Simulated scan of single mutants.
Amino acid sequence: MIGVRDAIIEADVTENQIRNDGLLRSTARINGERVRLSFVHPAAGPLQYPCDTYNDWRDNLRGIVKTLSAQRAMERYGAVRQHQQYRGWAALPSPVELPTSG
């Protein structure tokens, strides 16, 4: 929906559970609850969405999906413009060193 062509979903699996084409075997078992979605947004650049909030990887993946859906809704309903919701902390200035007294 946001124009991403190649998204990568990362999960904790052993190497023998991955096929030669990079996809999981049908018999693969996810070893933990952590997942991460990574992709390059056409306007905002590289983005990553890690999630380990829940006890099951499926729930964490659903959390990422719901987050993306909410971010899309922000622009759709006019609350943000030009993909601001995907920029995250990029707008924060670099830390400035304060002068020391003495």
Rank of each mutant, 00 (worst) to 15 (best):
N55D: 15
N31L: 15
S26C: 02
I64M: 01
G22D: 11
R34Y: 13
L24Q: 06
I30C: 03
L23N: 11
R62T: 14
R62V: 10
R19L: 14
C51Q: 03
G63K: 00
G63P: 03
W57H: 10
I30Q: 02
L24P: 00
F39G: 00
L47K: 07
S69C: 03
E33R: 14
R36F: 02
R58Y: 07
D21V: 06
R72K: 12
S69G: 12
V35T: 11
R72V: 13
A28W: 08
V40H: 06
L47C: 09
L68S: 04
T27R: 04
R29V: 15
A70H: 14
P42W: 05
R62P: 03
L47P: 05
T53N: 09
R34Q: 12
A73K: 15
R34W: 09
V35H: 07
R58H: 10
R19A: 15
S38H: 03
G45P: 04
Q48K: 11
N55R: 08
R36N: 05
T27D: 15
N20D: 12
V65T: 10
H41M: 04
D52T: 09
D59V: 07
L61D: 01
Q48I: 09
R29M: 06
R36A: 14
D59L: 14
D56F: 05
S38D: 10
G63I: 05
Q71P: 00
T53Q: 14
G22M: 08
G63D: 11
R62C: 01
Q71V: 08
I30D: 00
S69Y: 07
D56R: 10
R19C: 07
L24R: 01
L68W: 02
F39M: 10
V35M: 09
W57P: 02
N20G: 14
G45M: 04
T53C: 05
L61W: 07
V65D: 12
Q48C: 12
Q48R: 13
S69D: 15
T53A: 13
R29Q: 15
A70F: 10
P42L: 07
G63S: 11
A28R: 01
R58I: 09
R19D: 13
R29C: 06
V35Q: 02
D59S: 12
C51F: 02
R34M: 10
S69P: 02
W57T: 06
N55H: 05
P42A: 01
N55M: 06
D56C: 01
R72H: 12
A44E: 09
L23A: 08
K66T: 15
R72M: 09
I64A: 05
M74G: 01
H41I: 06
L37W: 02
D59H: 07
G32C: 04
Y49R: 04
S26R: 14
D56E: 11
L23K: 13
M74F: 07
I30Y: 03
A73R: 12
H41V: 07
Y54R: 11
K66I: 12
T27P: 00
D52K: 09
G22R: 02
R62S: 13
T27G: 01
R19H: 09
R62L: 07
L37C: 09
R25G: 09
P50M: 08
H41P: 02
V40E: 10
R58N: 04
L61S: 05
S69M: 11
P42S: 08
I30H: 00
E33N: 14
V65Q: 12
P42I: 09
A44Q: 03
L24C: 04
G45S: 05
G45T: 05
Q71H: 11
R72D: 09
Q48V: 14
